[in-house]
Simulated scan of single mutants.
Amino acid sequence: MSEGRPYGFEVLSLARIEARLVTYDWAWARDNAERVAQNWERRRAARPALFDGPVLLACDCAVTESGCRVDFFETTYSRFIAYRDGGSPDGHVANAFAAIVPWSADGAVLMGEMGPQTANAGQIYFPCGTPDRDDVRGDAVDLAGSAGRELGEETGLDLPEDAGESWVLLRGDGQLAFLRPVRFGETAAQLGARMERHRRQEADPELARVVTVRGAADIDGGRMPPFVRAYLAAAFADGSALTG
């Protein structure tokens, strides 16, 4: 069911997701090998800690009344980042990822500002990452597991036992953002304190700081990616299924 198109994104409530790994011949990456290498050299010069490991991107996504089916294929991070930096030019491949959206008991959203050593330094968004081989189970891609792992690694939070299982898809701008809103039993101050303690205990934390968003007025147009702004605008305008 569509919830509108804030910031150019289609916002869809999903009852279920079926994700699978397929074989895909990515012509753009093959035809632009030199551009990929040059872009990676530029990126590495700015942030030497970047690692060119395997990642999963989406090559097909079909939404029906009963849910969503999305196909992933494996490629390298350098190819993905060159494709993204170039504006996702071929239109057939999408940056698809899953994230838990932590909602506090008092109606706020908790997220983080990415640290200076990361590829998305300074941006503010939910704990998430591009799926990789660790998320593959046979020929299935475990998006729920990917989102839960990123939540734990970045924030130290575990999902509550009664966490809802519904999803929200943000589709647009070369992205498929599968968001799982989860309501925690603690206040924003309590959740934020737990996240901050975890961040300070890490030797090389991904997050520079914890950010609390209590309403549409807190949406940061400069540092929050469009999919984050689209979700927050829709959620604070019409809570319902978008808030866990």
Rank of each mutant, 00 (worst) to 15 (best):
S2E: 08
S2I: 03
P6H: 06
G8T: 07
F9I: 05
F9C: 12
E10A: 13
L12G: 00
A15K: 14
A15V: 10
I17G: 07
E18R: 12
E18F: 04
A19L: 07
L21N: 00
A29E: 07
A29H: 08
N32C: 08
R35G: 13
R35I: 12
Q38S: 13
N39G: 15
E41W: 05
E41F: 07
P48G: 11
F51L: 15
E65C: 02
R69M: 02
V70S: 04
F72D: 03
T75N: 10
R79Y: 10
D85A: 14
D90K: 03
D90F: 02
G91C: 11
V93E: 01
A96D: 02
F97N: 02
A99K: 01
S104V: 00
D106I: 12
A108N: 05
A108G: 01
G112Q: 08
G112F: 06
Q117R: 11
Q117G: 07
A119Q: 14
G122E: 10
T130P: 02
R133Q: 13
D134P: 01
A144Y: 11
A144V: 12
A144E: 15
A147S: 14
A147H: 04
G148W: 06
G152W: 12
G152E: 15
G156C: 12
P160N: 03
E165I: 03
W167G: 02
L170H: 04
D173L: 11
Q175S: 05
F178D: 00
L179F: 04
E186Y: 04
E186C: 02
T187K: 11
L191V: 11
R194F: 00
E196V: 05
E202A: 14
D204P: 00
V210K: 04
A217R: 13
G221M: 04
G221H: 13
V228Y: 06
L232P: 08
A233L: 09
L242F: 05
